[in-house]
Amino acid sequence: MSTPSVHDVAKSAGVSVGTVSNVLNHPHKVSPSTVERVQSAIETLGFIRNDAARQLRVGHSQTIGLVVLDVRNPFFTDIARGAEDKAAEGGLTVTLGNSDESIEREAKYLDLFEQQRVYGMLISPYGDITDRLESMRKRGIPAVLVDRESPNSTFSSVSVDDIVGGKLAATHLLETGRRRIAFVGGPMAIRQVSDRLTGASGAVRNVPGASIEVIELDALSVIAGRAAGADIVARAPEDRPDAIFAANDLVAMGVLQALLMNGSSTAVIRVPEDIALMGYDDIDFASAAVVPLSSISQPSAQMGQTAVEILLEEAANPDADRRQVVFAPKLVIRDSTAPRTEHLQK
Rank of each mutant, 00 (worst) to 15 (best):
R81L: 10
Q115Y: 06
D78S: 14
T95S: 15
V71N: 04
E89P: 00
I79P: 00
P74L: 08
T95Q: 14
T93H: 15
G97K: 02
V94S: 00
A107Y: 03
D85L: 07
R81M: 09
V67E: 07
G97C: 04
R117S: 15
L110Y: 09
S99C: 07
K108M: 09
I79G: 03
Y109M: 07
G120S: 14
K108Q: 13
Q115A: 14
F113T: 02
Y119Q: 08
G97N: 05
A87V: 06
T77R: 00
E114Q: 14
L92P: 00
E106V: 09
E84I: 00
A80D: 04
A87C: 13
L112N: 04
G82I: 07
N98Q: 00
L112H: 08
K108T: 04
V94Y: 01
A87L: 12
L69R: 05
L110G: 03
G120P: 10
G91T: 02
F76A: 01
E89A: 10
E89W: 02
M121V: 10
L96P: 12
G82Y: 06
E104M: 00
E104Y: 04
F75M: 11
E89K: 13
L92Y: 07
I103L: 13
E101F: 04
E89D: 13
V118G: 12
L122V: 06
G91R: 00
R72Y: 12
Q116T: 01
S102Y: 11
S102T: 09
V118Q: 10
E114L: 08
I79Q: 07
K86Q: 15
Q116E: 15
L69N: 04
N73T: 00
V71I: 15
F113Y: 15
R105V: 07
F76T: 01
R105I: 10
D100G: 08
L92C: 11
R105P: 02
Y119T: 01
F76D: 02
R105C: 09
V71P: 02
D78A: 14
G97P: 05
D111A: 06
G90K: 13
E84M: 03
D70K: 03
I79H: 08
V67W: 02
L112A: 09
A87F: 10
D85A: 15
